[in-house]
């Protein structure tokens, strides 16, 4: 088991390297280098840029040097000093801006993951066991609709309904008076009060997908001989389901964490913009529109890294739950 974890962790490193390269390429994509944007930005704010500052900035980011040198400066700054560069727009270090927002993105994604599981698991089992029942058809239909509505659209419609019929604005993660308050029990409650909307918005598509996966997997398993064999030993339907086919069908379910994370983070980005949540989404799009590239790259890289680590965790979890995987990796 230990060997398997080490192996998987080592395999993650090249992926992270490629992610950092892709993120760096994105910084480089817009025409002109970002010093021009810095200068333009500073001049917008009425400051004059003296050549000494310019030279200092140039030296710091290795501008004008070959691309691989620039990349190395950027990446080594992150790894060695936690220095993600500077946001030109906010004129602050990127590191100051991203952590709290990444944290909240993680909270939302994780809560959504739990939500989708709790909802999808029983419904998936039900629809497979009661195949072709009315409940099955209803769940399937709702599932299809859940898959067909893009996250932002669902968010918009929910906001419209809340605004129109309950006359309340549902954006944000905190009430106005709580935003700057220090963390307290009341603030957590306030967060939970606001959290459910993005969680529902984000979780609907995922839940629908998971229900379909669970249903299909379980239907496959129910056909297998071991189910009939267990039934032939006199087990009750409930015990039988729980201990045999559901346990098997659960494995692909767990592995879905891996691929649902990228989707969740993607969805969280868009939804956050619509619902103006204090997560990565709104700041990322602002940064992209303003070509505040260090900030944008930091977000893209950290979001990607987050999902890669999440996938790793789900793989390890899967190996713990499914003895067959450990077996296959023993050699």
């Amino acid at each position: 088991m230990g060997r398997y974890i080490i192996k998987r962790t080592l395999m993650m490193i090249p992926t992270l390297v490629v992610i950092s390269i892709v993120s760096f390429v994105i910084i480089q994509l817009p025409p002109g280098d970002f010093l021009t944007s810095v200068v333009a930005n500073l001049e917008d704010q009425g400051q004059t840029v003296d050549s000494a500052t310019l030279a200092a900035l140039q030296a710091r980011y290795g501008l004008g040097r070959p691309v691989h040198v620039q990349y190395w400066r950027w990446v080594s700054g992150i790894i060695l000093r936690g220095d993600f560069g500077r946001s030109f727009r906010y004129n602050r270090p990127v590191a100051d801006l991203i952590w709290s927002r990444l944290g909240l993105t993680f909270v939302i994604s994780f809560t959504t993951l739990i939500f989708t599981w709790v909802v999808a698991l029983p419904i998936g089992v039900y629809t497979a066991v009661k195949q072709r029942s009315v409940g099955d058809y209803i769940a399937t239909f709702i599932g299809f609709i859940g898959l067909a509505i893009p996250n932002f659209l669902l968010a918009l419609v929910l906001m419209y309904i809340a605004f129109r019929y309950f006359n309340q604005s549902v954006g944000g993660l905190f009430s106005p008076d709580m935003i700057d308050a220090p963390w307290s029990f009341a603030k957590v409650v306030d967060l939970l009060n606001h959290l459910w909307i993005p969680v529902v918005v984000l979780g609907t598509a995922g839940t629908a997908g998971l229900i379909r996966i669970m249903r299909a997997n379980l239907l496959d398993e129910l056909k297998k001989t071991y189910v009939m064999a267990a039934r032939a030993r006199g087990l009750s339907e409930w015990t039988l389901l729980r201990q045999y086919p559901v346990r098997v069908a659960l494995n692909p379910f767990i592995s879905t964490i891996g691929w649902s994370l990228p989707t969740l983070v993607s969805g969280a980005t868009v939804t956050a913009i619509v619902l103006s949540l204090p997560t990565t989404g709104p700041l990322l799009i602002e940064a992209l529109k303003a070509q505040d590239m260090f900030l944008a790259a930091a977000f893209i890289m950290m979001l990607s890294a987050l999902t890669v680590i999440g996938t790793l965790v789900s793989d390890i979890l899967l190996a713990i739950v499914d003895p067959r995987i450990k077996y296959a990796n023993r050699g």
Binding site: V22, S266, I300, T307, V308
Partner: peptide, 9 residues
Amino acid sequence: SIPTIPLWM
């Protein structure tokens, strides 16, 4: 493994 929306963005 990378979230598409941020990449696309």
